[in-house]
């Protein structure tokens, strides 16, 4: 079939697609909706940064796609499609196995993410050993290989060391090795650098970026710090109070953020080039899930909010390319 020269290559299908996700739970006896109508896609070789303040539902979103929602929280609407298959329809055991072979996860605190009473070598390959019934020697070889992959020096000598022999940054590397043990296509990283010092943060980010390129990983990177992901993220999704407020390709997003909340997030970080410039911080606190306002949830804190914002939920507004914001009064010019 002759391809027309104008036809663009079909985009790679997403590894994971979340469609209209809604998570309900209970808090102090009240029914609450913590995530509502959230959609995104994770594609091979790309990093999606899910950004928002604490309590906006970003970690619960990660927990939902990892099947780790705490007791009392449930996915009540939407789909999670793993390579096109709706995993929420699977029986729990099958879903757990599916997840284990296709997703890896790294969390915030490397100091507690490893079992203190098991040597790291055996922990790193535990899941792979059980699933593939590896023998002792092949398992050790695999563990060494994984530790070398994430840059643990002298990996062969360190297999029998315990977590407390490692620094925080090294433990996070071990945790990443552990997440990659079964060669997943998707990596979920929930604030993986927040507990680390700045230099280690940068190293871990570079490592994740290298692994993403080498292994064609689809990465979901969750953070509260937009500036952290500016260099590496391919796509950005900003959440506020359980909903998406803006999403798009990173380049388009950073060149002209549309939503006042995104601008506020960017403004809340000092820029090294212009340190004397006054930081614009956001007045007030994000609302708790039981007191979400009608209309735009950011309206009470928004400098541009008008009457319509307080009464009507904002529609998607398209910026340039595949970049959109949910806002009645988006910014139209660059920052």
């Amino acid at each position: 079939m002759p391809a027309s020269p104008a036809a663009r290559p079909a985009p790679t299908p997403p590894r994971l697609a979340v469609e209209g996700l809604r998570i309900d739970g209970r808090q102090q006896g009240r029914a609450i909706t913590v995530v509502d109508g959230l959609s995104f896609e994770l594609r091979p070789g790309r990093m999606l940064a899910l950004v928002g303040e604490s309590g906006c539902g970003k970690s619960l979103t990660a927990a939902a796609i990892l099947g780790l929602l705490p007791w009392g929280f449930r996915i009540t609407r939407g789909h999670v499609l793993l390579d096109g298959e709706d995993v929420l329809q699977l029986p729990p055991g099958a879903w757990r196995r599916r997840r284990a072979e296709s997703m890896g996860a790294v969390f915030q605190n490397p100091l507690t993410a490893l079992n203190p009473t098991l040597p790291i070598g055996s922990q790193v390959v535990e899941a792979a050993r059980l699933a593939e019934q590896l023998g002792r020697e092949p398992a050790r070889a695999r563990a060494q290989e994984l530790l070398e992959l994430v840059g643990v020096p002298e990996a062969a000598r360190r297999l029998d060391d315990y977590p407390h022999h490692f620094s925080g940054g090294m433990r996070q590397r071990v945790a990443i090795a552990m997440a990659l043990a079964r060669n997943p296509a998707i990596l979920v990283a929930d604030e993986p650098t927040t507990a680390l010092d700045l230099i280690t943060q940068a190293q871990i980010l570079r490592l994740l970026n290298r692994l993403q390129r080498e292994r064609d990983l689809a990465v979901l990177f969750i953070t509260h710090d937009l500036s952290l992901v500016a260099e590496y993220a391919d796509d950005i999704l900003v959440m506020y109070a359980g909903r998406a407020v803006e999403r798009g390709e990173a380049r388009a997003f950073f060149s002209a953020p549309l939503h006042p909340y995104s601008r506020a997030l960017l403004g809340a970080v000092p820029h090294p080039a212009a340190p004397e410039e006054r930081l614009t911080d956001i007045e007030g606190l994000p609302p708790a899930p039981h007191e979400y306002p009608p209309g735009c949830r950011f309206a009470p804190r928004c400098p541009r909010a008008g009457t319509v914002c307080r009464h009507e939920p904002p529609p998607p507004r398209v910026g340039d390319g595949s970049h959109e914001a949910f806002c009645h009064h988006p910014y139209t010019e660059g920052p």
């Binding site: 990892l66 099947g67 780790l68 757990r96 196995r97 997840r99 284990a100 072979e101 997703m103 890896g104 996860a105 969390f107 915030q108 605190n109 507690t112 993410a113 490893l114 079992n115 203190p116 009473t117 098991l118 535990e126 899941a127 059980l130 699933a131 945790a175 552990m178 997440a179 043990a181 079964r182 979920v188």
Partner: peptide
Amino acid sequence: LDYVRTARARGLSDLRIALHHVLRN
């Protein structure tokens, strides 16, 4: 603790987590 969550994320069974991880600690 987080190590239980990472064990779950790796797809280990509840029994394995109870006996091999939680009990040990």
